[in-house]
Simulated scan of single mutants.
Amino acid sequence: MGHGGDVIAELTADHQEVEELFAKIQGLPSGDPRKKNYADQATMELVRHSVAEESYLYPAVREHVPQGDALADQELREHAEAERTMKELEGCAADDPRFDELMMRLMNEIRSHVADEENNLFPRLREACSADMLNKLGDKVRQAKKMAPTRPHPSAPDTPPANKLLAPGMGLVDRLRDAMTGRGKD
């Protein structure tokens, strides 16, 4: 969950972690119950990652990157789309006929989003911000991920200040639910 380094290194490591989970899912046959476990793990990581980006990365992009508002708005639209897919997926068992279709949709949404961030947004942010600022953002993102929800909440606010106020409470409830059900454990 926390990798270290500046915000770009932290978020890129998250991207790689989720891609590894996607590869595990793709390597299993349709209906294999392990697919659901990996999907839950991926969802948990993606939700924490998204909440941290929405709380700290996108406000920094708006403030420091030329045309940052448009970039941040596009990223938020992509997050909302993926979150709706994760919410649908949450209710599916691995042997549900919709599971593989929803999982493929989510993987496509996330891979497209990651490519855009890593090839467009991150280089522009690195150019616009000092190393010190990027390191401080990395620290804030790591802290936010610790308190963030682990389940999709498509109707929750995705911009400050409301998201920063509500995310820790939703995160606590989600982590309690996960602990009680064993969700996301190997």
Rank of each mutant, 00 (worst) to 15 (best):
residue 38 Y to G: 06
residue 16 Q to K: 13
residue 42 A to L: 10
residue 98 R to C: 08
residue 79 H to Q: 08
residue 48 R to M: 13
residue 31 G to C: 08
residue 69 D to C: 02
residue 48 R to W: 05
residue 102 L to W: 01
residue 98 R to I: 03
residue 64 H to F: 06
residue 21 L to N: 04
residue 36 K to E: 11
residue 15 H to P: 06
residue 66 P to H: 10
residue 96 D to A: 07
residue 33 P to E: 13
residue 82 A to N: 04
residue 8 I to E: 04
residue 46 L to R: 12
residue 20 E to V: 12
residue 53 E to W: 01
residue 66 P to E: 14
residue 47 V to I: 14
residue 15 H to C: 08
residue 49 H to I: 04
residue 63 E to K: 11
residue 69 D to K: 12
residue 78 E to D: 12
residue 8 I to S: 04
residue 48 R to P: 03
residue 94 A to H: 07
residue 1 M to D: 11
residue 100 D to W: 05
residue 53 E to T: 09
residue 94 A to R: 01
residue 14 D to G: 09
residue 42 A to V: 10
residue 7 V to R: 00
residue 64 H to R: 05
residue 21 L to P: 05
residue 25 I to N: 02
residue 70 A to P: 05
residue 9 A to Q: 15
residue 15 H to W: 15
residue 28 L to E: 07
residue 78 E to I: 04
residue 37 N to I: 15
residue 2 G to V: 10
residue 71 L to Q: 05
residue 57 L to E: 04
residue 36 K to M: 12
residue 18 V to E: 11
residue 83 E to A: 03
residue 25 I to L: 07
residue 70 A to H: 13
residue 45 E to V: 12
residue 24 K to Y: 07
residue 47 V to Y: 09
residue 52 A to Q: 11
residue 102 L to A: 05
residue 43 T to S: 15
residue 30 S to D: 11
residue 86 M to L: 05
residue 41 Q to M: 15
residue 39 A to L: 10
residue 41 Q to L: 13
residue 99 F to T: 02
residue 33 P to N: 10
